[in-house]
């Protein structure tokens, strides 16, 4: 690990000033410390933000949910308001990492997670995210766990967060504050596909800090849930995952929000699936027809062709689980 200076920010203002001067924010540290030890990350100055007052979780006036960026994963998952209003959020969090890591990691940091691609983590391997222009080792390498959607010739790594899949399905907003004031952007635009600049992973400007993630109000009653498919039962990243939220009234689906994880370079919204559901009556056939559209545009690599069918089946199963009780 390379040496670095360490300071604790005592206010958001102080943090932003330090961030603008090149300081790197550290919250839970569960990704950053690990990557620093691997020398993938080499910050020269760490700015500890974990003491800032950004950990409130609260219902918004019209029935949405605002989660402070520094709330710990474990605390958000256990929050009664979260569990009651958006069970998918609690489910995604509890299916992530381990109890120890969830005690440390924050919500803002969870969304900011860097790829779990083995080549990204191996500083002896070419990787365009780590060293732009050096090449992508996964394209010709072992790519069983990699993405089939949103890839480019420069990078095929998946976004590792479970929570971000739910936030993408529910069209959450990322609230930031920076040297030029406050700003908000939809999570679908905040997380960036690799394209020609795989090293740019988020729409964050120098010194900007995530202060909260906000889920907009959705019509009630709302059923939501998160399903994660992986190589082992617990403590593992997703091969595929699906977040579903449905508002069913009078036997008809009025609102459908669906996104998938483990398959995209960012959490993958599934508008074709959503559109097929809205205005129709729940039935086993409907779930199957909608799920047929889940992998539209997929471009499998040598070792991850199975994800195309697995994604369709994961979507179908989760639609049945969430919507099948009408």
């Amino acid at each position: 690990m390379f040496p670095f200076t360490y300071t604790r920010a005592t206010s958001v203002h102080e943090a932003i000033e330090a961030g603008e001067r090149g300081g790197r924010y550290i919250a839970g540290g569960t990704t950053l410390v690990d990557l620093m030890r691997e020398t993938v990350e080499r910050p020269r100055a760490l700015v500890d933000i974990v003491g800032l007052p950004l950990s409130d979780v609260s219902a918004t006036p019209r029935g949405g949910l605002r989660i402070g960026a520094l709330a710990r994963m474990a605390d958000v998952a256990a929050d009664p308001v979260v569990r009651q209003t958006y069970p998918a959020v609690a489910q995604a969090l509890e299916l992530s990492a381990s109890a120890q890591l969830r005690n440390m990691a924050t919500i803002g940091g969870n969304v900011m997670q860097r790829p779990r691609c083995a080549y990204f983590r191996d500083v002896s391997a070419p990787c365009n995210r780590r060293e732009p222009g050096s090449g992508c080792s996964a394209l010709e390498g072992y790519n069983r766990t990699h993405a089939i959607l949103g890839t480019s010739e420069h990078c095929v790594a998946t976004h590792p967060s479970d929570l971000a899949v739910v936030l993408t399905a529910l069209e959450a907003t990322v609230h930031m504050v920076g040297p030029e004031g406050r700003r908000a952007t939809p999570i679908g635009q905040f997380l960036l596909q690799p394209g020609d600049t795989p090293d740019r992973e988020q729409d964050l400007r120098p010194g900007e800090l995530i202060v909260a993630l906000e889920i907009p109000p959705l019509p009630r009653p709302l059923r939501s849930g998160y399903l994660k498919v992986r190589d082992r039962e617990s403590y593992e990243f997703a091969l595929t995952s699906v977040a579903v939220a449905l508002h069913i009234r009078g036997g008809v689906i009025h609102t459908a929000k669906v996104a998938a994880g483990g398959v995209g370079t960012i959490p993958w919204k599934l508008p074709a699936v959503e559109q097929h559901l809205v205005g129709r009556r729940p039935s086993p056939d409907l779930w199957a027809q909608a799920a047929e559209r889940a992998a539209d545009g997929a471009r499998p690599l040598v070792h991850n062709g199975f994800k195309t069918e697995l994604l369709r089946r994961t979507v179908e199963r989760q639609l049945r689980i969430v919507g099948g009780r009408s």
Binding site: V33, Q100, L101
Partner: peptide
């Protein structure tokens, strides 16, 4: 030494955490 095995689990402020991912300076 990477937060993947739990052998280093300790309690900080009453919560179980991975000591390998905790900078002492914090």
């Amino acid at each position: 030494d990477a937060g993947a095995c739990g052998a280093c689990t300790v309690h900080v402020d009453g919560r179980r955490v991975n000591a390998c991912l905790t900078f002492a300076a914090r």
